[in-house]
Design a binder for these strands. Sequence first.
DNA 1: TTTATTACTAGTAATAGTTATCAATTGGAG
DNA 2: CTCCAATTGATAACTATTACTAGTAATAAA
Lengths: 132, 132
Amino acid sequence: MDTQRQHRLSRQRKVILQELCKVDTHPTADEVYDMVRRIIPRISLGTVYRNLELLCSQGLAQKVGQAGGQKRFDGAPQPHAHLRCRLCSRVVDVDYPEALPALPEALAKGFEVSACTLEFVGICPRCKAQMS
Amino acid sequence: MDTQRQHRLSRQRKVILQELCKVDTHPTADEVYDMVRRIIPRISLGTVYRNLELLCSQGLAQKVGQAGGQKRFDGAPQPHAHLRCRLCSRVVDVDYPEALPALPEALAKGFEVSACTLEFVGICPRCKAQMS
DNA sequence: TTTATTACTAGTAATAGTTATCAATTGGAG
DNA sequence: CTCCAATTGATAACTATTACTAGTAATAAA
């Protein structure tokens, strides 16, 4: 564990976070790559991956999406519910009215719980139309 | 869409489902492969993947685990909450007391919602101990 | 029963997404 | 400015998963 390690705010890192926060489409790594390349044309895909991972570990972003599927990133750090399309994998935010549920200590099986994700799965309007 | 396609219950498929249902450890595809190989030594990994995928699509199993991470499979078809370790990726079941939350129609943004996953994320006891 | 058709399998090759490596560059503390 | 660890771009390597293929087994049709 290198908790000592310092981080710097490179131009690349700043732009990646800015662009990620601009959208609520939960882009994949290479969608972020495309967005950032419009500003820093010579940025490399590896840098994008590296920074998205770092931002997640710092709690400035989070990963969403299907287990096993391609990663998608969310620039909103506070927890909120998601709605995922079973067919096209698109993820959209949902304003879940109640607070996200908490887990009673007694059921946590010794885990130190720090977060909770709530995801609804279904078919999005676009895919539903295409199935006609 | 080949909704017409018939399915057969091959020995391989039957054993894969049986073995998956025996455990509550949410194994990865190649953990299932190891389990099944003790019974059908010459089974191929591709067959395991193919059948796990099919079982999920039939609602006889489900995928769990971290977005973007390695797939893990759960032989219990009814929805239930999970507890995932941030460090070792292990997933355990949790007896979440209340019914899983539902999403009001008005917030579904046109999605046809068919499922909901609730996952608590944290550090498992084993990893917590190792960090000392 | 034979024949035709379809689903399935093992084995293997191919793919896609992601991570690791490394020499060169850069941010930021002093 | 000077120095050095953090970071980068480029590319290679890796790993989980999927696709392909020829052969086999199950079911249906004749």
